[in-house]
Structure formats: C-alpha cells, structure tokens
C-alpha cells in the first residue's frame, strides 16, 4: 500500500484552505502520498442528519464506495467529516437492511446517462477512515517528524485544542478525556506544549456562531480567555470549523471580555510545516486573520 486516499471535505476548499495547503505540504515533505478522492461529495455533516437520516447515510456512503476501489485508507482532516464517515461505517455494520438499501441505491446510479463510471458503485464496509493526527503519530511516527525539523519553534507556547468530534463519541486513536496525539506532534516541533488546558475537547460552538452568534460567542470566549490566561502564544487546532470560530471573531470576543484578544489560531500542520522550514506561503499562513509572524518576532526579542 502506497500512501492514502484523501477526502478534503467542503471546508478545506473554502475557509479551511490553509489546512489543505499545510497538510499537503507536510505530507509531501514526509514523502507520504495523499491522492484526492475522485469526484467526492459533501459528507452530509451534522446539518443533513438533522433533516434526513437515510439520505445523510447515502451521501456519506457514496464517498466510502469511491474510496473502497483503491483499497487504501482514507484520510479525512475535518473532524466533522471524519466522524460522519466513521459513524456511517458503524451504522452500516450494525444494520444490514440499511446497508442493503444504500447499496442498492448506489448500484442504481450506474443507469444514469453520462456518468463516467459505468461500473456499479457498491460498498462492502472495508474503508478505514483516518484522521491526519492518527496517521502522523501512528503510521509516520513522531521521531520521523522530529528528524525533519530544521527550525524548531523554541520559545513558543502552544495550546492544543482538539474540539469535540474526533474524541466523541468514538475515540479509536486517542484518549477520550485527555487526548495527546496533537501534544506529541507539537512536542516534536520544539515548541512548549501547554499540557494543562482543560478545555481542549470542549465544544467550539460549531455552526452556532453563524446561526445564533450570541451563544457561539459565549463558548468561543471561554476557550480563548482560558488559553491566553494560561500563557498560550498560539492555539493549535485540527478542524476547520474550530479554526474559523476561534480566529474569526476575536474583535467581538475582545469587546465581550473587555480586554484585547489577539492570538493566532493555527492548524497543527502549519506548525509542523514551519518547524520543517517550509515557507509560510506554502503553508497558507498569509491567509490568517491574526498573523503569527509578530508573535515569532516577539519571541526572538525575548531571548
């Protein structure tokens, strides 16, 4: 098996573009292949499940069916996509009649004119859906990453924030209450990992920031205030929605808290890439609303 299939999900083509850019750069530098799944569709996310369960399962299964053709593990970097695809695997395994219904619907799609694929789609349940945290720690290994570090992030204190859906309700590769995979990877970059960050798996508010902003702001403020109070220079994240919520509304959070909050929110892949000496543009750092460069400069002034 060489490399992995890659399921970007919609956010990594939009607000989470720097996650895709840095992920591809880091995997490339480590010599690990990521092939984008051909013609993938939306995973359904949490919104679809709130409207139509059967269709939500069918949507997710189409992606799994496409991935099954290659026989490789499927890497899904967005926490929500990762959970939806994993949960779908579990549901299909537990419910044979659901599996039959969805597979017969998938098989029927080959009758559609103009579909490039004439071979009927089907899914037997063999695709392993993996998060990049899992792949980097358990397949590539922390040592292999540490070996590639040329510009250690010394003097930078980073709070690892995992969010909810990669540890709940399933937690196949990390501790549910106190996950540490990101801590380990950040440790390899030479930064100081803020180990004592009790909110590391508390909800970021998800789409509430858009639908009910007052509620979302309440949750985000708590996460930011606590990380900063504990001395974080940067917060590291592993999910595009967490990233956007924590970064996008800091002026509003500052008003709410009565003190200025201005902390860079970076993907763990951006931090690893920086430590590997990959240039900032390749890692999508110019897309940040809160820039990391002043923090890095301030760090050398301290030394």
């Amino acid at each position: 098996m060489t490399g992995y299939d890659y399921y970007p999900g919609c956010s990594l083509k939009g607000t989470g573009k720097p996650y895709e850019e840095s992920l591809l750069a880091v995997f490339g530098a480590l010599g690990v292949g990521l092939d984008e799944l051909e013609d993938w569709n939306c995973c359904g996310a949490t919104a679809y499940m709130a409207v139509d369960e059967l269709k939500a399962v069918a949507l997710a299964t189409r992606n799994l069916a496409l991935a099954e053709r290659s026989g490789k593990d499927l890497v899904a970097p967005c926490n929500a996509c990762w959970l939806v695809l994993n949960k779908t695997n579990h549901r299909l395994e537990d419910d044979e009649s659901l599996q039959r219904t969805v597979c017969s619907a998938l098989g029927a799609t080959c009758t559609v004119p103009n579909t490039a694929d004439k071979e009927p789609l089907t899914y037997t349940g063999t695709v392993n859906v993996r998060h990049p945290l899992d792949v980097l720690v358990n397949d590539v290994g922390v040592d292999a990453i540490a070996e590639k570090v040329t510009k250690p992030l010394e003097g930078l204190t980073v709070a690892p924030y995992y969010g909810c859906q990669i540890v709940r309700p399933l937690s196949p590769f990390d501790d549910q209450d106190n996950p540490v995979t990101m801590d380990k990877l950040l440790g390899a970059t030479g930064c100081t990992v803020l180990e004592d960050y009790p909110f590391k798996t508390r909800c970021c508010g998800a789409s509430q920031m858009m639908t009910m902003p007052d509620v979302g702001l309440d949750l985000v403020s708590m996460l930011l205030e606590d990380a900063v109070a504990r001395g974080a220079d940067v917060i590291a994240v592993a999910c595009p929605l967490c990233q956007f919520n924590l970064e996008g509304y800091q002026p509003k959070v500052s008003n709410l808290l009565g003190e200025k909050v201005n902390v860079p929110i970076l993907y763990f892949t951006q931090l690893i890439g920086m430590a590997m000496g990959i240039d900032h543009k390749t890692l999508g750092l110019q897309r940040s609303f809160v820039k990391v460069e002043p923090v890095l400069a301030g760090r050398s002034a301290h030394e």
Partner: peptide, 12 residues
C-alpha cells in the same frame, strides 16, 4: 457526476 448524486437521492 452530479446526475449520479441526484439519482442516488431520488432512489433513496
């Protein structure tokens, strides 16, 4: 392959 997807949802 947008037709493939809408057909999938219709069959469901």
């Amino acid at each position: 392959r947008h037709d493939e997807l809408t057909h999938l949802l219709d069959v469901v």
